[in-house]
Amino acid sequence: MTTDPRPARSRTALIHAITDVLAQQTPDAVNITDIVKAAGVSRPTFYQHFADTTALTRAAALEKLTATFAAVDAQNLTPDAEGFTGRFTTALLTELRDDATFYRNVLKTAGDSALISELIGFLSDRLLNHSPFAAGVHSKTTEHESYAEFIAAGMSWSAMRWLCTDFTENNAPEAMAERLTAMVRAAAY
C-alpha cells in the first residue's frame, strides 16, 4: 500500500508560500486567499493542515529555523566547546540576519506563546543533544531538561531582541555570537 504524497506536497507548498510572502511583504498583507493561490491549493486544503495563518506562520518559522540549523551543522565546524560554539553561533546568526525580514514578520504575526514555547523546546533539545555544553547542563542539576529550557528561553529572548537591531558594530553577528556563547558557557559550567 502506497501513501498518498499529496498532503505532504500541499503542506510544503503552503509553508513555502507563507515563507515567500513574509520574506517580501509586511505581515498586514497576509491572507488565506493569497496564500492558497500562491501555493496552488484550495482553501479547504489549507484548513486540513492549519487552523489559521498564525499556525501556518509558526510552522514555517520552525521549519526554516530547523533548516538553518541543518545548514550550519553541515558546515562541519570543529567540535571543541570553545571554538565550535563561537563559530557555530556566528554562522547561525549570520543566517538569521540574512533572513531577518522573514523572522521579524513572523514575530509580528505569530510571535505568541505557542511559537515561543516551540522555539524554546527546539533550542533546549539542541542544547541537550547537539552541543558541547550538554555535559555541563547535565552536571548542573538533576532537572537538566528544565535547566536547558531556562537557558534556551534566555537565548531566545536575546536572539529575538537582536533580530530587531541594525546588525552593525555591537550588533554584528560576531559580537552577538560572542555574548551568547559567553552566557551559555556561564550557565552551563
Score class of each variant (00 low, 15 high):
Ser139Met: 05
His49Val: 08
Met1Glu: 13
Arg9Pro: 00
Gly154Asn: 14
Leu127Asp: 07
Ser10Asn: 06
Leu62Met: 15
Asp98His: 12
Leu93Lys: 13
Ala134Asn: 08
Leu107Arg: 04
Ala177Leu: 13
Glu82Lys: 15
Thr109Gly: 11
Arg6Gly: 10
Ala38Leu: 13
Asn105Trp: 00
Ala159His: 03
Arg161Gly: 10
Ala23His: 03
Ser156Ile: 07
Leu65Trp: 07
Trp157Gln: 03
Glu174Arg: 11
Val106Pro: 12
Pro27Cys: 04
Glu118Phe: 06
Ile18Asn: 11
Ile120Thr: 15
Ser10Glu: 15
Leu56Arg: 02
Arg161His: 12
Leu115His: 14
Phe50Ala: 02
Ile120Leu: 06
Phe167Met: 03
Asn171Val: 02
Val106Trp: 11
Ala114Cys: 04
Asn31Thr: 11
Lys37Leu: 14
Lys140Met: 13
Ala59Trp: 02
Val184His: 07
Lys140Asn: 13
Thr3Phe: 02
Leu123Ala: 00
Cys164Ile: 04
Asn31Met: 07
Thr101Ser: 12
Met1Pro: 11
Ala39Phe: 04
Leu22Cys: 14
Lys108Ala: 10
Tyr189Arg: 02
Asn171Asp: 15
Asn31Pro: 06
Thr2Phe: 10
Asn105His: 14
Thr94Asp: 07
Val36Lys: 10
Tyr189Asp: 07
Asp4Thr: 01
Ala8Cys: 00
Asn105Asp: 04
Ala13Ile: 00
Ala134Arg: 07
Pro173Arg: 11
Arg6Asn: 09
Ile15Glu: 08
Ala67Thr: 08
Gln25Met: 06
Ala177Glu: 10
Glu149Leu: 04
Thr165Asn: 09
Met155Asn: 05
Ala38Glu: 14
Ser113His: 13
Val137His: 02
Asn129Gln: 12
Ala100Leu: 03
Ala59Tyr: 01
Leu65Phe: 04
Thr181Cys: 12
Ala61Tyr: 05
Ala81Glu: 10
Thr33Glu: 12
Ala175Lys: 09
Ala67Phe: 01
Ser146Val: 10
Arg6His: 03
Tyr47Glu: 06
Ile15Asn: 09
Leu96Met: 14
Cys164Val: 05
Asp73Ile: 06
Ala148Ile: 06
Thr109Gln: 01
Ala39Pro: 01
Thr78Arg: 12
Thr2Val: 13
Gly136Ile: 08
Phe102Ile: 10
Leu163Phe: 08
Ala187Val: 00
Phe150Ala: 02
Pro27Val: 01
Ala187Asp: 03
Thr101Leu: 13
Ala39Trp: 07
Gln48Tyr: 09
Arg104Tyr: 05
Gln48Asn: 10
Leu56Thr: 02
Gly154Leu: 05
Ala8Arg: 03
Thr89Pro: 12
Phe167Ser: 07
Ala51Asp: 06
Ala153Lys: 05
Glu118Cys: 02
Thr53Cys: 15
Ala110Leu: 01
Arg87Glu: 09
Ala81Thr: 15
Glu95Cys: 05
Gln25Arg: 12
Ala135Gln: 13
Gly86Met: 03
His16Gln: 15
Ala61Ile: 07
Ser156Ala: 15
Leu62Ile: 14
Ala152Ile: 02
Gln48Leu: 11
Pro173Leu: 14
Leu77Val: 14
Thr19Asn: 10
Thr165Arg: 13
Phe122Tyr: 05
Arg185Phe: 01
Arg97Gln: 14
Ala59Gly: 09
Ile120Glu: 14
Glu63Ile: 00
Leu107Ile: 11
